[in-house]
Design a protein around this nucleic acid. Structure first.
Lengths: 330, 330
DNA sequence: CTGAAAGCGCTTACAG
DNA sequence: CTGAAAGCGCTTACAG
């Protein structure tokens, strides 16, 4: 392996002079030496040793991306898109990206400290541990979609509540009167907010949605049971994600129920698949690319200026109308 | 930050004794000291500094996963699934995972060397650069889906040719007589092999597929033009991936053509989506989880024993019959 | 503009 | 079972 020392010896200068050239402090080195050193670096294929650099600088060029969970978390297209957007953006800035799937809080600190990560981006629900994570890790930490009550938090989220509102209004405008919601209501603020926005808006318009119509993801494996449990015949279902929406569509199809003929459905996320597969999905769109880039930008800013104030950024959502909601004539 | 030195001081022993405990060389330390040191480590929340370790050991605990491309490479569900399977498996073994999207060959060596990566797994087409990559990086390198002509290569692939054979036979069995193929034929051996298996089998059974019926992915944006270019009316289309298959289905739908009524289609990969969305896709299934795990296992083996021989492992594929191929009565 | 010294936190190799 | 010494490849801080 070629080291600074090797280059220095060959150039007949000290290690420090080479180090300066490598780090672009060219104003501090004579032109003659710069040229000579750069040539040798190129010829030898010298690559700076980041482990040595990090040890010396007490900080690395590593950005850690932490996805909640311990299985294949990228099967979820939302997670995959987020991570996939972050990778090239982080690379572009000269950082290296470590990817972690973590369920256990202790692992986060361990993994961040082991490599002296320069910063971290969190994908998934960490609401419960935000405070502890912050206390143990004095580096910029950017959360996404957090509804943690911690006041000093760097977070990028979307207007989940509004998403619910838009879905409810759309159904109402299309003449629907009986509603259901499907999502993991217990696990995250995100889903809770989508539900709240949906339910509040229904009530504002004089409709109610009884508890039996609020379903967990796992329930839809047994659609017959669901339909039986409904207090009245449901025509409009709001799914907490696009993938969930398609899962519902397929499960109901087994019973001979078709979307949008027998049921109307609105998804959430606005994934490309919603426009690539039938029925095209009416959905609440969020700009995942923008969210990912923004998370990175804010992280970079906090790395450059640790005194930059924390804050919660909320991106807008919008309804995209496609083919999964039927108009009911009254 | 807590260091070995801090622990040593508090325990009244040398740094080496603590180091031994941290590294599990417990047979070399007295029970009394082990206990004392372990308690202090826990109390202080000591985390070994991996950058120091790596520098000292001249090798890191980092496995680099290198995906070919420079955009959002995880929008592709195949890539996302592969990476998503590798992450927890690598973590389980005590390694850290760096994720890179790389287009340019030089970047590979730079990124691998910078961190003294312990090994690397390649996802995507690197056939052209395998030799150079191997020459510059003396660590275990596991390629996937490579058709490089380099003899000494560690590769995990699938029987792409057989996939083509199975697709052809299935169409023929169902009474089809006129065929087309869609895929990026120029870019990779993978697609080329799928095409070869398909075409060879057709010919063995007395059918031919003219060049006009071999289409590039980009062509399907304009389905009307495609249909016009066909030498004869096609009933059977073999798509080089599931996502491509759905894309074809949607594009043809714009012309009022339905699958499988007007066209039959077979996909490739066996992604979950093929069973979650209509029409359920008849497809050539490959076990991506197995492939990912195997790539890791082989990498680990080569890390543990650098003299372990290189080799090409080929996983089987099978046809999964679902609803996208129609039977043609003759 | 240049370089010698010290140190980052660990491990390797050796001596006891 | 224990530890002192040297070194991994860099950077920081200082002196010239």
């Amino acid at each position: 392996m070629v080291t600074l020392k090797d280059i220095a010896r060959e150039a007949g200068v000290s290690v420090m002079t080479v180090s300066r050239v490598v780090n672009g402090q060219l104003s501090k080195v004579s032109e003659e030496n710069i040229k000579k050193i750069q040539e040798i670096i190129k010829k030898r294929g010298y690559v700076p040793n980041s482990t040595a650099r990090s040890l010396s600088a007490k900080a690395s060029n590593i950005i850690s991306v932490i996805v909640q969970g311990s299985g294949n978390e990228l099967i979820n297209p939302y997670n995959a898109t987020m991570v996939g957007e972050i990778v090239p953006y982080v690379q572009e800035k000269g950082y290296y990206l470590m990817l972690h799937f973590i369920d256990n809080y202790d692992d986060i600190t361990q993994r961040l400290r082991a490599w002296n990560a320069r910063g971290a981006i969190f994908i998934g629900t960490f609401d419960h541990d935000v405070k502890k994570i912050q206390q143990d890790n004095r580096i910029p930490l950017v959360f996404t979609d957090s509804y943690s009550s911690v006041r000093q938090i760097i977070n990028i989220g979307i207007d989940d509540y509004k998403g619910g509102v838009l879905a409810a209004k759309h159904f109402i405008n299309k003449g629907h009167c009986s509603f259901a919601f499907v999502g993991r209501t217990l696990t995250s603020g995100v889903i809770q907010q989508r539900l709240n926005g949906f339910r509040d808006t229904l009530e504002e318009h004089g409709f109610t949605m009884s508890t039996e119509h609020i379903l967990d993801e796992s329930d839809i494996q047994n659609p017959a049971k669901i339909i039986k449990s409904f207090k009245e015949p449901v025509t409009a279902i709001f799914a907490a994600s696009d993938t969930l929406a398609y899962s519902i569509i397929e499960n109901f199809k087994k019973l001979g129920c078709r979307v949008p003929d027998d049921y109307s459905i609105i998804g959430f996320d606005g994934l490309p698949i919603g426009n690539c597969v039938s029925p095209h999905l009416t959905t609440i769109y969020q700009d995942i690319t923008k969210k990912a880039r923004l998370a990175c930008d804010i992280l970079f800013r906090h790395i450059d200026d640790p005194s930059f104030p924390a804050g919660n950024t909320v991106l807008d959502v919008e309804l995209i109308e496609r083919d999964s909601v039927k108009t009911i004539e009254t």
